[in-house]
Design a binder for these strands. Sequence first.
DNA 1: AAGTCGACAGTTTTT
DNA 2: CTGTCGACTT
Length: 786
Amino acid sequence: MQPISLDHLNDSQRQAATHVGGPLLVLAGPGSGKTRVVTHRIAHLIGQGIPARQIVALSFTNKAADEMRRRVTDLVGPQAVEMGTFHRFAARLLRRHATLVGLTSDYSILDPDDASAVLKRAARKLGLSLTHTPIDRLATTISRAKNDLLTPDTFEPRWGRPADEVALKLWPVYQELLLAANSVDFDDLLVHVARLLLDNPELRAMLDARHRYILVDEYQDTNSVQYCIVRGLSVDHPNLAVTGDPDQAIYGWRGASIRNILEFERDYPTARVVKLEHNYRSSANILGTADRLIAHNSRRKPKRLVTDAPAGDRVRIVLDSTSHDEADRIADEISHGLAAGRSPREYCILFRTNALSRSLEVALRGRGVPYQLVRGLEFFKRREIRDVVAWLRLLKNPRDDEAFMRVVNVPPRGIGRQSLELLTAWADDHRQSRLAAAARAASIPGLTKRAAKGLGEFARLHARLAAVAAAEPSVATLLGEVLDRTGYRQWLADDGIDEEGEDRIANVEELLTAAQQLDASFPNRPPEEGSAEIDPLGAFLETTALVADTDVWDPSSERVALMTFHAAKGLEFPIVYLVAMEDGILPHERSLDHPEQLEEERRLVFVGITRGMQEVHASCARIRDYRGTRRISAPSVFLTEMTGSETVLTGSEAPLSGTLAIDDFAAAGSMGSGADLDDTSQLVTGPADEDISQDMAAPETPPARRTSPARDRAFQTAADLAERLGGLSKAKHTYEAGQRVRHVEYGEGLLTGISGTGPRSVGTVIFDGPAGTRKFILGHGALEPA
DNA sequence: AAGTCGACAGTTTTT
DNA sequence: CTGTCGACTT
């Protein structure tokens, strides 16, 4: 293997890229060449003679994984390095060891919609009304708990949150339904794998040895389950390299814990730490502005952003009169830019919520500026796509009740809700899948003749197609058979007289193309190590379940990109617009009284600013039409924080002096007068927030100090698990009340009591010295027998 | 069994 | 302004 050239890396980049064994933390600021470092490091490892299949590179998005693969291939040709998302990696692993968690390798992956449907069924089964607790709320509660590595046994409903109580009741039933349907939700992919690693030491050791070099990208966004998986695979071979930037952690609301990156060095004391602070993307003014903003965050590792780039244009802060003006102004500016020879793809407009895109779209369309709205999850959410994929799922996994429910009456077979309810009840009583029940529809009491006939026909149709599926290696051919024999294609064609129908047909055709592509690529794929080949259908279903962003941003397209701040992470554009930077929108009103969340919002703006290479324009409007109502807005506190020598303040609402003084700026912000602001507070309506009621009910807990107990517990859990995984002897001690113990700092003392059991049991110690009485989690190893 | 109407609520969302 | 949900009608 030819050693790869590292000439065009700077010193720190080279340090990181040539690191081979042992833990490595790369703190990579925006635009610091992180991907380059990661890909060069992979190439370097291979150059060192490390077998490619021992290397695993994990990312959060398929886009990032694909990019990584492409660039590694550019460096050292196609390699058997496992590169993919956490979920994809987990899905593969789980397929091989599915029986250990009660699944078969043909398990289905449910998307959030299907998972919600299962949750609803669980609620019906328990006779719980969902009128006061929306299903989505319950789903997120359970999802968050899972990502915190909690179980129904360890999950404690937070005080004052009725949704938690309901979720706790539903959760076990939900899991039973999933298991019976041989299905997992997105979260389970990770949770099951984490459990495998925790509960099967031999398997864990085997996987640890197989995946010796692990790289994790965007480590600041890992949650407890991911943390657990990564640690579980890095015990015997702690060649764990993580890259990330705490200042770009923006998924805390999904359970990501910034702790993981902030305390990597505590987790791995021998870790080598490399900081990539040199920015190759943005002008000095843009970086300076980003730097000033993020400095307002307290919980962070100080990090500089260094550049050799010229100052460039100052970051422009624009105070517009109305949201309409803002959109028009931006559209005009872009339009002029295009007239002056700029390409649309040099522009990007970022907003906090998708709903804010509307006025911009209208304005751009009005001027004939081509744009693309970057929203993932479009294609596979289409009804027709989900229908067809559900058919394939049902062929792969006949117990997939959600898939069954989706397609059983599509096209219509005279099977209505009533009939399905009877079928479901019967199936539950007899512990059968819906499909199995359908095959025996004749013996189900209460079904109408028509329904029984329809169900029977459906079951026979499935049997015939299953036979095709078993014999047919081509997914595209199978898909064609499904479309024909189910009458789905015909049904669409009959329906497809209008434009929408045409779209549906086109979408199905596109899915067929995707299947053909998979078929074509299949024999060329490097064989999976140590496992039976994944069959094409399985691979296709895995991809459709886990690749949600076919509709994703196409960088080569000649269009202005419109997306949320979140979606922009990892991208860069010469000219970036940050719109609707107003109090209540960014920062979002729900984060205003939560310091942690406010810091995350600030990081969001940091991410937004640092997307810009040449120009950044941030704006707000005094009057905003949003969601059908008009509200008076005040400029975001973040605009004030950004303001400095690198920024310039303009716009029709800006003070006439045009000076940069923050006082002027603040004055401009409140220029709507007191009456207007009062109106604002009335216009900002919404359901009583649970957090607020919690505040009122528990006034002794000041918001500034409050952290989510569930979160703390999650950290605790993860840390405990990590200790267990680490096999640290410290954690192995057993304790009894009354015994003498020693603490490294507090000296010796008497263990007076133990509460709880297992690794999280807490001991109370009265120290001989001045430390007094303290409590310890015994599993943490802070104590040892004296 | 399937369509239509009105009430209602509405961050972000890598998988 | 949207999309979703439940009740109501054919």
